[in-house]
Amino acid sequence: MSRETPTTDDRDPALVVTSMIDHVLDLAATWTLWDGRPVRVDERVYTPHKAIRRVTDHLIDHLAEVEARLAGNPTIPDRWHASASTTPADLAPFTDEDLNEARCRLTRLGRIWADRLTALTPDQLDRSPGEGWTFRQIAFHVAGSAYYADSVGDLSKAGADR
């Protein structure tokens, strides 16, 4: 994912985030077919569990940033660099139970993001307090988390692709 300033447009930032989550969950619905082989993208590897973890972490990290800045507090930087790490749990089979958990967790996070972004005025979205990107830019950046799920892809087509 890029650290360049995110490009925005006139779409509702809440819808940008929730649409990304819908896309991720649509892909995740195919991941119970995963054959256990990590997918190499650039210098990193991705698995269904890692993709869900990265999307979730990204949503939480930037939500914490938005809330801290609104409260006038300093943000806590993420020093883990989790995209470079593949844990043993990331290599586990992706089951129907995992899909259900992902749906529940990401749907709730999407609702929190939508509620927060909808409560902000256009001025707050575009002239956000503190240092860093505007909240509108953060929403569009977070939507880029689809990259992790796209790296794993639609596995209902895996038989033809692999």
Rank of each mutant, 00 (worst) to 15 (best):
M1K: 07
M1H: 11
M1T: 14
S2C: 09
E4T: 14
T8F: 06
T8G: 08
D9S: 10
D9W: 06
D9Q: 07
D9N: 15
D9A: 06
D9R: 03
D10P: 05
R11K: 10
R11W: 02
P13T: 08
A14D: 02
V16G: 01
V17N: 08
S19D: 15
I21E: 04
I21L: 14
D22L: 00
L25T: 13
L25V: 11
D26N: 06
L27R: 00
A28S: 13
T30K: 04
W31E: 00
W31F: 07
T32I: 02
T32S: 15
T32E: 14
L33N: 12
L33T: 06
W34I: 08
D35F: 12
R37F: 02
P38R: 04
V39W: 00
R40A: 15
R40C: 00
V41C: 05
D42M: 12
E43M: 09
R44V: 08
R44Y: 13
P48T: 06
K50V: 01
R54Y: 09
R54H: 14
V55D: 01
D57M: 10
H58F: 12
L59E: 03
H62A: 06
A64Q: 13
E65T: 15
E67M: 13
R69S: 10
L70D: 00
G72Q: 12
N73F: 11
P74W: 05
P74M: 08
T75V: 15
I76C: 08
I76Q: 15
R79T: 14
H81M: 08
A82F: 00
S83Y: 06
S83R: 05
A84M: 08
A84N: 09
A84V: 12
A84R: 14
T87F: 03
T87L: 14
P88A: 05
D90W: 00
L91Q: 11
L91D: 02
L91F: 02
L91Y: 08
A92H: 05
F94G: 04
E97L: 09
D98P: 03
D98I: 09
L99K: 03
N100T: 13
E101K: 09
E101R: 13
E101G: 07
A102E: 03
R103K: 13
C104D: 10
L106R: 02
L106I: 03
R108Y: 06
L109F: 05
W113S: 00
R116Y: 01
L117A: 06
T118D: 09
L120F: 07
L120E: 02
L120N: 07
T121S: 15
P122V: 06
P122I: 07
D123G: 04
D123F: 08
D123Q: 13
L125C: 04
L125Q: 01
R127E: 14
S128V: 10
S128R: 04
S128C: 08
S128L: 10
P129Q: 10
G130T: 11
G130S: 10
E131R: 14
W133G: 14
T134I: 12
T134W: 07
T134V: 10
Q137D: 04
I138W: 11
F140R: 10
H141T: 03
H141Q: 09
V142M: 05
A143T: 00
G144N: 04
S145T: 03
Y147W: 09
A149H: 06
D150I: 01
S151A: 15
S151Q: 05
S151Y: 05
D154R: 04
L155K: 01
K157G: 01
D161P: 01
D161I: 00
